[in-house]
Design a protein around this nucleic acid. Structure first.
Lengths: 336, 336
DNA sequence: ATGAAAGCGCTAACAG
DNA sequence: CTGTTAGCGCTTTCAT
């Protein structure tokens, strides 16, 4: 195996092209002050040698022209949408992208962000609901940061979020209009509904909504992630008597699990989800859900990050309006 | 914003701890020859300053202790399984992980791999069916490479693949046992069934199977990626007369689209998929499909990569056995 | 327009 | 066991 050490360096290119190292560097970055003929010679030498600049060496002097994305939950189709929006927005820029996968666990996400800092990326875009705000602010003190899906408005970093309060209200209003009064909320474990996370807001807004006159007591059902876990929990809840006629699930994956249980055991119960993942609109489910414009949100997050990298200073928080998509899963009217 | 430039350097730590830079470096890497008291002092100074070593500077001298994953198609649940297996296997090692997202397009994947080379990762694990073998071998000449899902056995890099020929035969045999003779194959565009890709093998094996006595002429139906595209194509095929009683889809996402069309228009047609994505086993679909042990495959790929990084030299190719999961979507017997 | 030279922060000999 | 020092490959003034 050819050791990385003997890969061509900028000096080799300079030698082949018969110019100085500085000249090569300038051509590479197309900086000011290179004659067309010099550019020609250098490019030829670069091609001939298959030269590629070493990013580590470059990064030691200044920008790395890389943006980092802190990411987790690769199986989440909504995150996938936002990721593809961000990648598309970044693909037309001189910035490359590296993704740091966040490990599971309590401090999930901060290691990923730190690893990006250590790599001297020029800016960070992250989906990290669990990371304490103080940690993010520490990092935002060192480089531009845009957080995705956080409602905690910080002056240190930008945020792109969906309007979860509004989306939740829309979903619940839809059920209420159908005549439902006893609506349960199926959501994730308490660790993930803390603070100003999307799931925290959805839960808070649910409680607020159930406070309205005519609505019943709130019933919060907790589950681990995954369709299967949601299914099990719902089977149990239904077995225990199920004092509700509709379920508002915190996201579509849970909703699918709930819908599966409901169809099997209590087809009269309505289910509404959140996110509008692709399978939701399959006629096999016809899941009524709250659509979020993930691609646009991802693209906007990337754009905000670039603005910051280029120098903007004040924090920006942008909220995207969700939109209810009514489908069959919530058609059956409530029982009297 | 605190500029990256004034982040603490190793010299600052040395000053605070009252020792030399080399001593700090040794403690950091816990190299041989540091007294406990020195270690103590240094660690204290590191914590106090919030010092973090700069990976770029470190990489310039030797290993980066990073493995790179070339990845694309973030929405593909099978890839997600293998990714989570790989990440889990890597999480217990001193190696960090960065993921380079592959852009769409013909040479999809090679830019991602090159970008990892430029970052001086210690090894690359990639899912890149479309990249020409020569390009991979060029990279494998510079650092360890493990490819996921490629059947082209190269001496330059390792490979982890599913036994697509066997999986395909199992799926088709199942349909044949049910009495089906006219089986169509729904697969992706020709650009992705070339060479020794998984889809290429599945297609080739399908043709071979249909050559058996008693089977009808092969019918290959092409579609773009996505359930919706597959649905449209199948609606069209059925509208055009559908001279088949069963469909073998190249992967589950296509199978779901096909199943949706079939249920709507020709519920007598059986559908079989490949990959066993989570939604496949939902009773709403009950999709018969070929299960691949994605998590194990990902973990094994990561392990092979580490072996290479640690010095193994001969190439290894490992094939994983798929397993047919029979469900409702293929129960209806063929029409006479 | 071009080139020489001084580092960026770290590691790894080597000396003490 | 600890410290000094010479680079790693690149960018970037500053002369020429």
């Amino acid at each position: 195996m050819v050791d990385g050490r003997n890969a061509p360096r900028i000096l080799d290119v300079a030698r082949v092209a018969g110019v100085s190292r500085a000249a090569v560097s300038k051509v590479l970055r197309d900086a000011y002050g290179v004659s067309p003929e010099m550019r020609e010679k250098v490019n030829k030498a670069v091609a001939e040698l298959g030269y590629r600049p070493r990013l580590a060496a470059r990064a030691m002097r200044g920008q790395s022209f890389t943006v980092g994305i802190g990411y987790s939950d690769f199986g989440n189709p909504f995150f996938t949408r936002m990721l593809s929006g961000a990648l598309a927005a970044l693909s037309d820029t001189p910035y490359q992208v590296v993704i740091a996968p966040a490990e599971e666990g309590e401090r999930q996400g901060i290691e990923a962000m730190d690893s990006l800092v250590d790599r001297q990326v020029d800016g960070i875009l992250a989906v990290s609901p669990r990371v304490p705000q103080a940690d993010i602010e520490r990092i935002a003190g060192q480089m531009p940061v845009v957080m995705f899906g956080r409602h905690d408005n910080s002056a240190a970093y930008d945020a792109v979020v969906g309007d979860d309060a509004r989306g939740t209200a829309a979903a619940l209003q839809h059920l209420a209009d159908l005549g439902h009064q006893r609506i349960a909320h199926l959501t994730v474990v308490a660790a993930d509904t803390r603070g100003d996370t999307a799931h925290g807001i959805r839960l808070r807004e649910y409680r607020r909504f159930m406070d309205r006159p005519g609505m019943a007591q709130p019933q919060v059902i907790r589950t681990n992630e995954g369709q299967d876990a949601a299914y099990e929990v719902m089977v149990e809840a239904i077995g225990a008597g199920a004092d509700f006629t509709a379920v508002f699930a915190a996201h579509d994956d849970l909703a699918i699990g709930a819908l599966t249980a409901v169809r099997e055991l209590r087809p009269d119960i309505s289910v509404v989800g959140y996110d509008d993942i692709p399978i939701a609109r399959n006629p096999a489910f016809g899941l009524t859900t709250v659509h979020q414009p993930g691609v646009e949100m991802g693209a906007r997050a990337a754009a905000l990050l670039l603005e910051r990298v280029e120098g903007r200073d004040e924090a920006v928080h942008e909220m995207f309006s969700p939109e209810l998509r009514v489908r069959r899963s919530s058609f059956p009217p409530a029982l009297p």
